[in-house]
Amino acid sequence: MKYLFIVVLLLCNVSAAIIGVKKPNVNVVFIGDSITQGVQLSDPATEAPPATAIAWMRKQKDLGTIEFSNQGHSGYTTLDFLPGGKTFAKVEDAANAFADKNALLVFSVKLGTNDSAIHGPHGAPVSPDNYIQNVKTITDKLLADFPKAIIIFEHPIWYSPNTYNGSMYLQEGLSRLQSYVPKLDSLAGAYAAANPKHVFVGDKKAFDYFEKNHQTELIAENGKQGTFYLHPNKTGAVSLGEFWGKAIERVVKSNF
């Protein structure tokens, strides 16, 4: 019995070591707008949704080391992120700058809020067909330059139908934003068929969550049609980060 106990103990130790080795290290580049950037938060470096997403992921026992880069830019649309421009070049520079080249590279993409505006941001309003073509162009280039990478499309989040700051959104914009979602899902499905295990739909829950909890988790902002809700506050950024973190973890686990 003594020898049996020793053998079992050794096997447990070996199994634990193997499990430890298999924990994936992950590098994440977040692509997005002011919501991703966290421009209205006091310390975006630690409070913006990408930072809170990574903080949540680092608490998970099934993941290894995790590094990230926040490439969110206030006011930017899919047109601003198209390949060939300075913004896309910075995204690629961020991906290349990670020290651990063997880690799984993930691009978490949350674009569409500014595309949906009636006017104001670059190119707005961006039609659903043009929006999804832009997303495809960005995705194709990322996959061409980083063929082992994973790209995750996060669903955009809700904003109030009276949103009108320097740009005009309103109900027309919100409806347009919602029309982007099924096209994102279809695009991910097309990639899944043509190039499996590289493009996924990430979070689908945050839109409804913020619609229900906007008075406590979005910032009340003064606009041209009254108080509107668009950007997460500190609490909301934690919630959104957890939605994104869970989505990224799910995708990473499905690939290991």
Score class of each variant (00 low, 15 high):
S254W: 02
N222Y: 06
P44L: 14
D185M: 09
K59I: 01
G32D: 05
W244H: 08
R58Y: 01
H119M: 03
F200K: 15
L41R: 14
F228T: 09
E47V: 04
I66C: 05
T163L: 00
V199Q: 12
A48K: 06
V109S: 05
L240P: 07
G64Q: 00
I6N: 00
N13Q: 11
N222H: 13
A103P: 04
P125C: 01
P121R: 06
A103H: 05
I18L: 10
T78P: 02
K141T: 14
A220T: 09
T36E: 03
P49G: 05
R250D: 14
F146W: 11
L142Y: 12
L79F: 14
G202P: 09
G38N: 09
A16K: 03
G226D: 11
P44N: 14
W158Q: 08
Y159N: 07
S34I: 12
R176M: 10
V29L: 10
F207Q: 07
A144H: 06
Q71M: 15
M57E: 11
E172V: 00
A53T: 05
A149H: 01
P161K: 10
A206K: 04
V106D: 06
A95W: 00
K148C: 00
M1V: 10
G123L: 08
F81Q: 09
F88G: 00
M1S: 14
P50G: 07
A144L: 11
G226H: 11
K110P: 01
L143G: 05
E221F: 06
I248K: 06
F68R: 04
H122W: 03
P161C: 01
I151Y: 03
H122Y: 09
H231E: 11
Q215G: 08
D140Q: 10
K212N: 04
K183F: 05
E47D: 13
K61N: 13
P128V: 02
L184E: 15
L104G: 07
V39Q: 06
G189A: 13
A190S: 13
V39D: 04
K141S: 13
L143M: 07
G38S: 13
F68G: 00
G123K: 10
Y159G: 05
S42Q: 10
S186N: 13
S167V: 01
A190N: 11
I31E: 03
W56G: 00
F5E: 06
Q40S: 05
D93Y: 09
Q40E: 14
F207I: 05
K136T: 09
H122D: 11
S160I: 04
D43G: 03
G20W: 09
G202N: 10
K23V: 09
G75Y: 14
A117T: 01
L143K: 02
V199M: 04
K61F: 06
